[in-house]
């Protein structure tokens, strides 16, 4: 972890794709050498329930990609397919490939992908409830040499000073925001090459959301790539360079974060933002007609 404000050389992303209007056919994804590559990935649960229906996603080295879309679209499933957590839920990558740093990883168990440098911060703030904050973090660094782990611990506390104050506390009793910091910190302890975070803002007060996202912005200066799944699309697109919108197991839209932010249709339909920026409910929107227009 080499932190350093503004020290992010040649932010791998966006050069190629910037300005291109979002379209339904895959526009080739973000530029830059790919760290993670999903090609035509299908995921089946319990052998019968087809949840991902052939998706293509590229995450460049040191890039940040946002996955957006309504509930049940398959965002979490996508992350699980990459990390291998899928296999603990009777899920399977039934077609297509997941490649990480050039190698296929779709058959690896979750415990193996971690060793490759993929850390999945799962939905729901999965702290180790009965362990202290520090034990959570130390356990997160269990694959490091102990000297490196010590260094990582200091760095993590630097990122999350609040965790340093709470180090002796039983993590099950922390507030939601503190728990979210803890799970991100715990993933950081493993010094990942790719961190995938599922809905970090879920159920948190606006101020806490801001705090978490400001830390994620700082994390972008580290030598790692990020994938973020978020309902708070404005925050996610402010962080990411590139975004994919999933619906019903397919990618219906992708483009640079900038282009997604400014696209009227997306603002209205997927991001629930009216032209003036206020939130609308999905119910207000004529779902099918709009989607047809995109797919057609």
């Amino acid at each position: 972890m080499v932190a350093g404000p503004g020290a992010r050389p040649g932010g791998a992303l966006t050069e190629g794709a910037s300005g291109s209007a979002p379209s339904t056919e895959s526009s080739g994804g973000p530029g830059g050498s790919p760290l993670l590559e999903l090609s035509n990935v299908e995921v089946t649960y319990s052998g019968v329930i087809l949840v991902l229906k052939g998706i293509n996603i590229i995450v460049p080295e040191r890039g940040c990609v946002a996955l957006l879309g309504p509930n049940g679209a398959g965002k979490s499933t996508t992350l699980k397919a990459v990390s291998g957590v899928l296999k603990t839920e009777e899920g399977l990558v039934s077609a297509g490939q997941v490649r990480f740093a050039g190698e296929r990883i779709d058959t690896l168990a979750a415990e193996r992908t971690v060793r490759r440098g993929i850390l999945h911060v799962m939905e729901g703030r999965k702290v180790l409830e009965h362990m202290t904050v520090e034990q959570n973090l130390v356990a997160g660094g269990h694959l490091q040499r102990s000297r490196d782990a010590k260094e990582s611990l200091e760095l993590t506390y630097e990122y999350f000073p609040r965790l340093a104050d709470l180090r002796g506390r039983t993590s099950g009793y922390l507030s939601g925001g503190e728990q979210q910091m803890l799970v991100i910190g715990r993933a950081l302890m493993a010094r990942p090459k790719l961190m995938m975070i599922d809905e970090p803002s879920l159920g948190l007060a606006p101020l806490m959301v801001e705090e978490i996202f400001s830390i994620l912005h700082r994390l972008r200066q580290e030598d790692l790539a990020l994938v973020i799944v978020e309902q708070n699309t404005a925050a996610a697109l402010a962080l990411a360079d590139y975004g994919y919108v999933l619906d019903n197991g397919r990618i219906v839209l992708d483009g640079t974060a900038e282009s997604l932010r400014s696209n009227e249709d997306i603002r209205e339909f997927y991001l629930g933002l009216g032209a003036t920026g206020e939130r609308k409910s999905f119910r207000d929107i004529k779902h099918y007609r709009r989607r047809k227009r995109w797919l057609g």
């Binding site: 850390l119 999945h120 999965k126 180790l128």
Partner: peptide, 9 residues
């Protein structure tokens, strides 16, 4: 938790 353990490697 077994799933958390696996997700931590």
């Amino acid at each position: 938790d077994h799933q958390i353990a696996q997700s931590m490697g």
